[in-house]
């Protein structure tokens, strides 16, 4: 166990992210092909599923091209600026620190994810990820335009606590990779001790569901215990219907990628007041829906 206390260079920490990221992507592509073969055997393959999957990868490229470079530079500069000027200490770069960083980053991910669901601005971008009516590995790569922006604010405190920026990047990446692997219907339930502590495909299917009892549940990244502790956990005990409500019914990548912001823009444009506009940005999306229902009811009476 001595190696846990060994100091790493920042180049090595960065290297592990590059290494794991590269091979993980290859593994997920292989897994996706396996999923497609399995779907084919089950005779569930449709042109819509193929179109939806291609759209998922197009959103990934769009996300990288439109926001990825800018956001990566923003992250890099921002984290190092905070680390040099506002960190309360600078923790040693060791494997032990990395383990601690992953646990805290996983909690940060929980809160960031919860924020994306309960704030109109966050949902405008994150709704893209949820808008697929399918649930396979390619859905994990279905990104919205600003999906990379908000995590900065939830992970910057880790840098302030003294974690080296590259260590925070690696921890964030590991949480993200773990999450990615959960997007599958092929795995049903895992052994009970695993389901009790870890996030699993079953738990994450619940998160992607439109069933009313599953709405805004299971935000976890790696450990499901955060949801259990903070009261946002739901067990998968009825058949899951995937997607968002109302459905977008499109595999057009442009429509899929921008539909959240188009909808939010339209709501802002038609808002009756500035305070309403502000609430559209910060309140949960369900609030806007309720207001629209009230307005319709008033108009018809």
């Amino acid at each position: 166990m001595e190696f846990l206390n060994q100091t790493l260079t920042d180049l090595e920490v960065y290297g592990w992210e590059e290494f794991i990221g590269y091979w993980f992507f290859i593994a997920t592509v292989a897994l996706f092909i396996f999923e497609l073969v399995a779907v084919g055997f089950m005779k569930k393959m449709t042109w819509n599923l193929i179109g939806d999957s291609i759209t998922n990868f197009i959103t990934l490229v769009s996300y990288r091209v439109l926001g990825g470079v800018f956001i990566a530079l923003f992250y890099l500069a921002g984290f190092f600026w905070i680390y040099e000027n506002f960190s309360i200490t600078q923790l040693p770069i060791t494997w032990v620190s990395l383990i601690g960083c992953i646990i805290i980053a996983d909690m940060a991910y929980y809160w960031e994810h919860r924020f994306m669901h309960v704030c109109g601005l966050g949902w405008a971008t994150h709704t893209v990820h949820h808008s697929s009516p399918y649930f396979n590995i390619s859905v994990a790569y279905r990104f919205g335009p600003l999906d990379g922006l908000f995590p900065f604010f939830f992970h910057a405190p880790l840098v302030m606590l003294g974690f080296h920026p590259f260590m925070v990047f690696l921890a964030e990446a590991l949480v993200q990779f773990y999450q990615t692997a959960l997007h599958t219907e092929l795995v049903k339930k895992l052994p009970r001790p695993v389901e009790a502590v870890m996030n699993t495909p079953s738990h994450h299917r619940v998160h992607h569901a439109t069933n009313s009892k599953y709405i805004d549940k299971n935000y976890a990244g790696i450990f499901i215990i955060w949801d259990k502790m903070f009261g946002t956990f739901a067990e998968e005990d009825e058949k899951v219907r995937f997607g968002v409500y109302p459905r977008i019914n499109s595999v057009n990548p442009v429509k899929v990628f921008f539909h959240g912001f188009v909808k939010l823009g339209s709501q802002l444009w038609n808002a009756p007041s500035w305070s309403y506009r502000f609430k559209l940005l910060v309140k949960p999306p369900i609030w806007a829906w309720e207001q629209e229902q009230k307005a319709k009811a008033q108009a018809s009476s």
């Binding site: 100091t7 040693p92 060791t94 620190s97 601690g100």
Partner: peptide, 28 residues
């Protein structure tokens, strides 16, 4: 969340890390 973070952070502040060698202090 803050309490859990604080406990983990304190553990890391007082961890018995090996002092970095000259090589390990070298930076990107």
């Amino acid at each position: 969340t803050c309490l859990i973070t604080g406990v983990i952070w304190l553990g890391l502040v007082f961890q018995k890390a090996n002092p970095p060698t000259d090589f390990e202090k070298y930076s990107t």
